[in-house]
Simulated scan of single mutants.
Amino acid sequence: MRPLWRCRACGAHWPCQPARLGLLVEYRQDRAALLVYLGGLMVEAGDQLARLHPQARPADLHERFLGWARARGGTMFHVNHEPGAEIHHTDPFAVPAGQRSPVRRLRGRLAAPVTLWTAPGPAGLTVSSTLVAEGEPDRLLGLIDPESDVWAAIEEAGRFAVSPLGPPHRQLADRFAGLFPSPGGLFATGSWTDTPYGPVPSDAGGWAGCRLDAAREYGWGLLVEATIEAVDLAEETMPLLHYRGRYHELT
């Protein structure tokens, strides 16, 4: 979000942890191009942030945009590395201690179910802020990125589908969160079932068809309110949970 240079999804200083991971995956074959790209953004951010924070140090900005992306000691950080592969002794995605938001840390300690929102188009997004409210009618709420493709598709179609994901869907969840490459498109792999509300994973624990009621800015995200019009539940499966930045399973 310019000129604040914070992530629209999580509110942390950009590039945040997910952004760094996504950039390393995108530029995994050309680290020099990544540094050139980040250098251009650093100059743009420096001009805008200097007006908001005159006391900011250029050295901090350099480390924020470029320091984490440099290869150190000839060892590259491996995404989804194979057993025995070398990784750097520090986490290149870690936010410096002084920049960690206590509110974000609190949110990280609230375990949340991982769901997939899809809409005709098709478009999709991994969402870990889905809440179901029983009533007459039954409702569904969620926080999503207002600039995401799925929101544009939901806004146009007026409907969408929500599927709870399970442990086998870790890679799918990363793909729709923009953290894993998707050659051929997000829906190019896997088995999908077409519904009037959007495609849903055939092996998910079910899905809910929702009609869009309203949406409004809420914090850094967009609060979406919808009415549940259809529910199709398969055999009960174990949920995939998001807790402190990682996926977890019930034991």
Score class of each variant (00 low, 15 high):
70 R>V: 11
56 A>E: 02
162 V>D: 08
70 R>I: 11
185 G>N: 01
125 L>N: 03
158 G>A: 05
219 G>Y: 04
196 P>T: 04
8 R>E: 13
44 E>Y: 07
22 G>H: 05
238 M>G: 15
170 R>N: 07
240 L>V: 09
77 F>K: 01
244 R>K: 15
52 L>N: 00
174 D>H: 07
199 P>E: 01
229 E>K: 06
33 A>C: 07
236 E>Q: 10
41 L>K: 04
139 R>V: 02
13 H>V: 10
94 A>I: 03
8 R>S: 09
13 H>W: 11
218 Y>D: 08
165 L>V: 05
105 R>L: 11
34 L>Y: 11
12 A>Y: 04
5 W>L: 06
63 E>F: 09
136 E>H: 10
62 H>V: 14
13 H>Y: 09
132 V>N: 03
21 L>S: 07
126 T>S: 08
234 A>G: 14
206 G>M: 05
47 D>Y: 08
202 S>L: 07
28 R>M: 13
94 A>K: 01
86 E>N: 09
119 A>D: 03
221 G>T: 00
227 T>K: 03
104 R>K: 11
151 W>Q: 02
200 V>T: 03
207 W>V: 01
246 R>A: 15
243 Y>G: 14
167 P>E: 05
176 F>G: 02
75 T>C: 12
57 R>H: 12
14 W>I: 06
42 M>K: 11
27 Y>A: 08
108 G>N: 09
45 A>M: 02
77 F>L: 08
46 G>Q: 12
66 L>M: 10
133 A>Q: 13
125 L>I: 09
83 P>W: 05
15 P>D: 04
190 G>R: 01
95 V>F: 07
113 P>A: 10
217 E>L: 11
161 A>L: 03
59 A>S: 03
100 R>N: 06
13 H>R: 12
96 P>Q: 15
218 Y>A: 11
201 P>D: 09
103 V>Y: 15
136 E>Q: 11
85 A>H: 08
247 Y>T: 02
28 R>N: 14
61 L>K: 01
219 G>P: 03
32 A>M: 06
65 F>M: 13
228 I>R: 08
10 C>G: 12
237 T>K: 11
9 A>Y: 02
19 A>C: 15
149 D>L: 11
240 L>M: 12
71 A>Q: 00
1 M>Q: 09
42 M>L: 13
38 L>S: 07
170 R>I: 02
135 G>V: 03
66 L>V: 14
92 P>W: 04
34 L>H: 13
216 R>N: 02
129 S>D: 14
62 H>M: 10
199 P>T: 01
14 W>A: 15
17 Q>I: 05
132 V>F: 13
118 T>Q: 01
54 P>F: 04
164 P>W: 02
12 A>P: 05
87 I>P: 04
167 P>G: 04
48 Q>N: 08
211 R>H: 14
238 M>F: 08
97 A>L: 15
16 C>N: 02
150 V>E: 00
218 Y>W: 09
